[in-house]
Design a binder for these strands. Sequence first.
DNA 1: GTCTATATACGGATAGAC
DNA 2: GTCTATCCGTATATAGAC
Lengths: 249, 249
Amino acid sequence: MKFSDFKKLVAVSKEDIYREMLAANRASIRVKKEKTAVRNLEKIFRAVLKISNRKGFQAMTMRDLSRESQMSMGALYAYFTGKDDLVSMLQKQRRAVIMRILEKEIDKREGPSRQLRAAIRTHLFLSEIMQPWFYFSFMEAKNLDEREKLRAIESDRFTDELFVAVISRGQEEGLFAPRDAVFTAGLIKAMLQDWYLKRAKFRSRDTDVETYADAVVGLAEAWLAPPQKEQQDDTDRPIRPDPQGGGTA
Amino acid sequence: MKFSDFKKLVAVSKEDIYREMLAANRASIRVKKEKTAVRNLEKIFRAVLKISNRKGFQAMTMRDLSRESQMSMGALYAYFTGKDDLVSMLQKQRRAVIMRILEKEIDKREGPSRQLRAAIRTHLFLSEIMQPWFYFSFMEAKNLDEREKLRAIESDRFTDELFVAVISRGQEEGLFAPRDAVFTAGLIKAMLQDWYLKRAKFRSRDTDVETYADAVVGLAEAWLAPPQKEQQDDTDRPIRPDPQGGGTA
DNA sequence: GTCTATATACGGATAGAC
DNA sequence: GTCTATCCGTATATAGAC
C-alpha cells in the first residue's frame, strides 16, 4: 500500500482523533457541545505538541499554552483537570490508534514476508501522520509519573512482540535466515524511531516516507535473506535492497 | 581492542574529567583548592545526571540537587553561576572527550575496514563509560538555548561526517558495496544511539557492550559486503555476522 | 463557555553568619 | 568554603463576572 492510499484508508483524521478523545474523557470535560469541544481539543493539543516538542513539556507553562492556543487560562481548565491530565489524554489516544491500526494491517496480510513489510510500512506511515505525538511520547516518557511510565513500557513491548512474532514465524517456515529475532526486531525498531526522532534531518535531504520505508524493508530483507537459495516470495511490493542507494537521494 | 583494554587505555577516569572541567571553568568557579573542587564537581554532576535522567533537567530543582549531592544551595552556587551553566559545562566536556578520543582511535587504524570497526567500537565503548552523559545530551538537546543547540547540532554532524568519510573511502577502494553512504552512516548511528538510549533493555537481556559491538560491526559489514568476491580484509578483529544470533544471548 | 483577576505555593538565586 | 534564611519572580489553579 502506498502512503497516499494509507492516509485515505485509515481514519486518523484530526477530527476523528479528537472526537474519540472527547468520548473517552466525557466525565472530566465540562464543555457540553461536541462541536465546540472537538474544535478546542484540537487547538489545545496542537499547541501542547508544538510547545512541548520545541522546549519540553515541563518547560511549557499554562501561559504559553494559553497564548499558543488562543484560549484563556480559565477556558483551558474546562478541558482538563491539570497539566498531567494533558499527558495521559495524549498518550492514551496515541496508544489506542497505533495498536488498533498496526494489528489490523498485519492481520490483513498472509505470510511472514508480507506481514513484516506491512508492519514496517504501517508503523512508518503512522509515525509520519502523527509525528509530533510519537516524538512527544519518546521524549517525555521518562518524565511521566509511574502509572504512565508503566503504560508506556507496556505498549513498547507490544510493538516489540509484534515484530519478534513475525520474524520468528518466518524463520520457522524457512523464509528468513536464523538471525537473532530479538536483536533484529530491535534493529528495525531503531530505524523506525529514527524516522520520527530525526524528522528535520530527513526533510533537509528530501527523503520522503516511501523512500525511507523502501530502505528499511530492503535492509531488513537483506539481513533476513536465507543464505542458500535466493528468497523468492515476492508479494505486496517487491523491494530489493537498491545497490545504488539505500534510501536517501 | 577489547572493552576492558579500552577502559584502561583511555584517560576518561572520573577524576580526569572533572579536573579538566575545573580547568576549563577556572574563572567562574569560586572554590580555590583543586582537590575540593574536583571532588565536589563530581558529586554535583553525578547528582545532576542522576536526577535529570530520571525526571528531566527542567524538572530538577536546585533543592533536589542540594539533597542528592549532599551540598547546600549556597555551596552549589560556588561552582556555577546558574542552572544553565550546569548544562553547558556538561555538554562542553562531553564533546571534548568524544571528539578527542574518536578521532585518535580512527587515525590509529589503517584502511577503511579497520577504521569503520574502530569508529563503531570506540563510540560504543565511550557511550558505555559515559552513558548518563550521552543520554542526557540526547534527551535535553532540544530544550537548550539557541547557542547550545547549535553546538549540539555541530558536534552531531562531526560524528556523521567521520562515518560517511570512512564509508566513502571504502567504496572508492572497492572494499565496500556501493550502498548510499549517508543512509548507511545514519543506520549505524541509529544503532549506536540505541545502545545508550535503551540501556535498561540491554541489561535485562544480559547483552554486554562487546556482544553488541560485534553485532553492529557484523551488520554493517554484511550490509557493505561487496557483491562479487567475498570481502577478505580481516584485520583487528575478524567478525562475521553470526548466523546464529546477531547480538543478544 | 469564556474571560480577567488573583490566591497560593514553589523555584532560582543571594546575603550574611560562621 | 559552606551553611541557613530569605527575597522575589513566576507558575498553577480557581473564583467570580459576564
